[in-house]
Design a protein around this nucleic acid. Structure first.
Lengths: 339, 339
DNA sequence: CTGAAAGCGCTTACAG
DNA sequence: CTGAAAGCGCTTACAG
């Protein structure tokens, strides 16, 4: 009396329905669907046929309860509207799908407190978390990592798995390029103080500039956005800089457009470079010189590492080599005009 | 013997832990946390204090089982890398957070089959689905909508809630603008055949062009991407068109850049317009004329409607007025050069 | 290889 | 207002 599958809405089939149709016990259905091979071939066939007929899909919530495995991962971002995160999202999404996990996206809105709140809230819903642009203090993050698999992107904390860029490897060629163009005074238009990448980039500049006989100084950005970049123009023009390295492409584009609007020649009067190579960086006039990061790849690798952490031996952190940065020279950098 | 909260990783507290600490039964804890007011104020205070002390966070999977409420929504997209979806994602994310739901993002990769597969897969994990760029056939979608709350964006199906743009309201001003510039032959560089918006735009052109004494014809796009737009240039130049309306900004930008590369004057020889006003549309040279859609707002409204469907009376569909489109004239459209 | 039973962490009629 | 009990849909030792 199971009846044919009708067109009318029906509650989704459970393993009990499948069991009844296949004339076995629910436990056997569970085994057949989870560990193929541990069951007689014939029984398994019967069960699969029944499951198919009833369009059975396992209820992930019900499975999660006894096993603790939610088959869900979270990607935590500081700001989902920044184009830089698209690659990360796409890569993480692909990686999660490949490993059979569902991905949820969470946003901290550039706030360390919101970050912690979200972390706490989603904790019970996910098996692990990729913390892509952590802004919060170190201690809570470390504690979280002890309780639940976490992979950091663009940040390092002792005893927490992380995947980071080879920052000096990206900054050096950029600085070389600017030096070769003839720049001696370079401003760094900085990003969020809580950003690890921001500090690292500044540190790399400080270390690499002197040997090249270049001066560097920081112009603090108000926000890592186009508006933040545009606002900085005034201070840039007051400074001795002939070239600006911005924390990210968004700021670089904002600065570049503001300069164009004020008839300041780019790159003649001011060379401008960014980081990330976001969508849009090649669309500006002049097209933006930038340091590209393989973010999609990084997102995928972060998820892979996370899955390894979840499914593997909890003892040791996965090995992760830094990802390579690549200088893309376009038209927004060049020799300073003389005079 | 509950002991102080230690720094070491501990399994998350359950309502049983809270109950023990507060010296009440688990049922009372559940009530106190879910329906404040139905419990004596004193007991409730005790329970809240205990919950706080243990950093209790309700286990959403466990709650979902008896209630069927997962507090999770899905946003289903055709392509997560298209910048046009960012607004949608952001709006949906905000809407979901505001209503206390978690959002998961799913991607169909422009395939109707993958769409159905994903739909089936996530069904048990979510309370409802925003289907933002449905590409699949109508019947399965309608069936799904009968079993589970669904809100369509950019598509209509009988008896399924949906939120759509006022397409003619966006196409008309664009056509007027091109007519005023002096264009008589306009090509429509089309998008995916399965896209409702694509058909509607074409339909609007067909209806609105003749009264303006304009000719329109379709040039089929291979893909709704920059590459798809670039590829179309050859056929555009073979045609009598002096202006092209592209299915979306991505295609318009691809076409525009290809034209620039081949030294074809934009807008002199070819005026180009797109739809959506994505990030990047104002960065091109010339800046792109486009029809902007309030996608963030649409995403938020779609989620609101979905939540209404989930929590409200299941009988009637929420009323939803179409969202307004707005022509943004920039520099990629203008009078055709004579000769 | 297969089944009966207990349990995952909640909620909610049902009593009191 | 509060508690004991049953049940949500699974999984997994434990027997056989």
């Amino acid at each position: 009396m199971t009846g044919p599958v009708s067109d009318e809405p029906q509650p989704p089939a459970t393993i009990y329905d499948v069991a009844r149709l296949a004339r076995v016990s629910p436990s056997t259905v569970s085994r057949a669907l989870n560990k193929p091979g541990r069951i007689s071939a014939q029984t398994e066939r019967k069960i699969r046929a029944a499951a198919e007929r009833l369009e059975f899909e396992i209820n992930p919530m019900a499975r999660a309860l006894p096993t603790g495995r939610r088959m869900t991962l979270a990607l935590m971002l500081a700001d989902i509207t920044n184009p830089v995160v698209f690659g990360l999202i796409r890569g993480a999404e692909r990686g999660a799908a490949a490993a059979g996990y569902t991905l949820i996206i969470a946003e901290s809105q550039e706030s360390g407190e919101a970050e912690l709140r979200m972390l706490r809230k989603i904790q019970a819903s996910v098996d692990g978390i990729v913390l892509a642009t952590a802004r919060g203090p170190a201690e809570p993050i470390r504690q979280f990592a002890r309780a639940k698999p976490i992979v950091l992107v663009n940040r390092v904390e002792p005893a927490v798995a992380s995947i980071i860029p080879d920052v000096p490897g990206g900054v050096a060629p950029l600085l070389d390029h600017l030096r070769a163009c003839g720049h001696a005074n370079v401003a760094y238009l900085s990003g969020p103080a809580a950003s690890w990448v921001n500090s690292e980039r500044w540190a790399a500049l400080v270390r690499l500039a002197p040997p090249l006989r270049m001066s560097v100084f920081e112009i603090p950005g108000r926000a890592p956005t186009m508006a933040g970049g545009a606002e900085a123009l005034e201070r840039v023009m007051l400074s001795p800089a002939t070239a600006v390295i911005a924390f990210n492409d968004l700021m670089a584009i904002g600065l570049l457009r503001q300069a164009r609007q004020e008839k300041i020649a780019v790159p003649g009067r001011l060379s401008i470079a960014g980081f990330d190579n976001i969508f849009g960086a090649e669309l500006t006039t002049p097209a933006l010189t930038t340091v590209a990061a393989p973010l999609e790849d990084a997102g995928a690798r972060a998820v892979e590492a996370l899955v390894a952490l979840i499914e593997g031996s909890p003892a040791r952190l996965p090995e992760m080599s830094p990802f390579e940065l690549r200088l893309i020279v376009r038209d927004s950098t060049g020799p300073p005009a003389v005079g």
